[in-house]
Simulated scan of single mutants.
Amino acid sequence: MSIVLKRIYDEPPQLGGHRILIDRVWPRGISKEDANLDEWIKEITPSPQLRKWFNHEQEKFEGFKKAYKEELNQYAKQKKLQELKETSVNERLVLLYGAKDKQYNHAVVLKVVLDEM
């Protein structure tokens, strides 16, 4: 099937697919009921140190992308990534994130990694 990225604030819950929040912190203003999630996976998010360093600053994105990919190479994260990839074969995978910037965020990097698997 496919893997799609959607900003949780913009995405209508009725869109369908296996809905996964991929943020470490719950998005403000969104109730768990309204989010209509199948999963909330914190384990594959960037480390708090990396997230704070990046701070969604566009000029740091290349360094962030490289460091985040290295973090995703850890065994525990690889196992979860493989599960996500397998899910995407059978049904649409909707990866939800809260970042305002739709181009420079960890979800973009995560999708690239999953697409390359």
Rank of each mutant, 00 (worst) to 15 (best):
M1F: 13
M1G: 05
S2G: 15
I3R: 09
I3A: 08
V4G: 09
V4I: 13
K6S: 08
K6L: 14
I8P: 07
Y9S: 06
Y9G: 05
D10V: 07
D10W: 02
E11D: 14
P12S: 10
Q14W: 00
L15W: 04
L15Q: 11
G16C: 15
G16D: 11
G16A: 15
H18R: 11
L21M: 06
L21H: 03
I22P: 02
D23R: 03
D23H: 00
D23Q: 04
R24K: 13
R24P: 04
W26D: 00
R28M: 05
I30T: 12
I30L: 14
I30C: 11
K32P: 13
E33I: 15
E33M: 09
D34Y: 03
A35V: 07
A35I: 10
A35R: 03
L37R: 03
L37C: 15
E39T: 04
E39V: 09
W40V: 13
I41T: 09
K42D: 14
K42N: 08
E43N: 05
E43P: 03
E43R: 15
I44F: 11
T45C: 11
P46A: 01
P46R: 02
P48Q: 13
Q49G: 08
Q49F: 10
Q49Y: 12
Q49A: 11
W53K: 10
W53E: 01
F54A: 01
F54C: 12
N55I: 08
N55G: 14
N55K: 13
H56S: 04
H56F: 00
E57A: 09
E57Y: 05
Q58N: 15
Q58D: 07
E59W: 11
E59N: 15
K60G: 08
K60A: 04
E62N: 07
G63W: 04
G63V: 13
G63T: 03
F64E: 08
K66I: 13
K66F: 12
A67V: 03
A67H: 06
Y68M: 02
K69W: 00
K69N: 11
E70P: 12
E70V: 15
E71S: 08
N73W: 03
N73Q: 14
Q74V: 04
Y75Q: 13
Y75E: 15
K77S: 08
K77M: 14
Q78A: 15
Q78L: 01
K79F: 09
K79C: 00
K80L: 15
K80E: 05
K80F: 10
L81T: 02
E83I: 00
E83R: 15
E83P: 05
L84W: 09
L84D: 02
K85T: 01
E86D: 09
T87G: 10
S88K: 07
S88E: 12
V89M: 12
E91S: 09
E91G: 14
R92H: 04
V94G: 05
L96H: 12
Y97L: 10
K100P: 04
D101Q: 12
D101E: 15
K102N: 09
K102V: 10
Q103R: 11
H106D: 13
H106Q: 12
H106L: 02
A107S: 06
A107Q: 01
V108F: 10
V109P: 02
V109K: 11
L110H: 00
L110I: 02
L110W: 11
K111T: 00
K111E: 02
K111H: 06
K111P: 00
K111L: 07
V112K: 07
V113A: 08
L114A: 01
L114C: 10
L114D: 04
D115G: 08
D115N: 01
M117H: 15
